[in-house]
Nucleic acid binder design. Sequence first.
DNA 1: GGGCAGGTGTAAT
DNA 2: ATTACACCTGCC
Length: 311
Amino acid sequence: MPAWIAKADGLHLARTLESGQAFRWRWDAGLDGARVAVGVVGRHILQVKQDAGGLYLLSPDTEDVRRLLLDYLGCSREPRGVAGIEAALVEDGVLAGILPHTRGIAILAQDPWEVLISFIISANNNIPKITQSIERLARAFGEPLRDGMHAFPAPARLAAARPRTLAACLLGYRAPYVRAAARMVADGDLDLDDLRRLPFEAVRERLLEVPGVGEKVADCILLFGLDRTAAFPVDVWVTRAVERLYFRGRPLTPKQIQAFARARFGPLAGYAQQHLFAYARAHLRDARTSERTRPAPRPRTAAPRRHSRGT
DNA sequence: GGGCAGGTGTAAT
DNA sequence: ATTACACCTGCC
């Protein structure tokens, strides 16, 4: 009999783990054929499932890991649960319309170090390749666990990584950013736990000093790693959703979207972002709302490349 | 093949 | 303060 964790109060496990916050979860078939989520959290390999009865931790079945999972799922941060959050979000007419499709998405409380590196890698990238890069990083630099799985690499290991090995992780031009960020953390120039004490904008400014971290990635770290649910990461999907659902398709700058979100959603902006993001990916895949109204791109001139790759 | 993918750095205005 | 462009790499 697996350890029953909680009714989870409206938390939808699959939607949460597939919402693009975390990149280290897979689905396996359980003994009864039900889908089981397998993921690496810290040094633990967790097996979790959810059915009508609630949320279950299949293994490891210990009190410590049970608490770890509840923390990871954001339950400690949000005593009212996602159901309580959504009861507030539904006051927004637009969210009321999309919540039926997205209900149950929790905001995870992940290790900010892992979030930092994961989202540096996410820039101008796609989710399958992000996932693959992170798996390769774990395999190359992370502590071996079991079944061929590895913990997320420690800062010192990535800071000392050979460029050759990083390149094999398919980081591309992001490799120097990953290494520089790791060096800052390993050397103590960036103390991620210390950031928790600072006010929102101060944390954001600190994060923006890290190479490879821009506004969007900084907001992801604030939201997914530092418990700041007021953060509102503005990516291409959220841009599409906000332009389309709140501004009749009018093109907006990221700053305008940010200001809108802060005014409209306040401390719940991060949750609103998750629902808008999920909705956009499912329903606005072709709606390049803003592109149509932008001027046509200038034709390319055949300029010589600076880093020519030898013949 | 040119374009695209959870953007960012850099060099311009 | 804002804007235009290049960019590893795998995939269509």
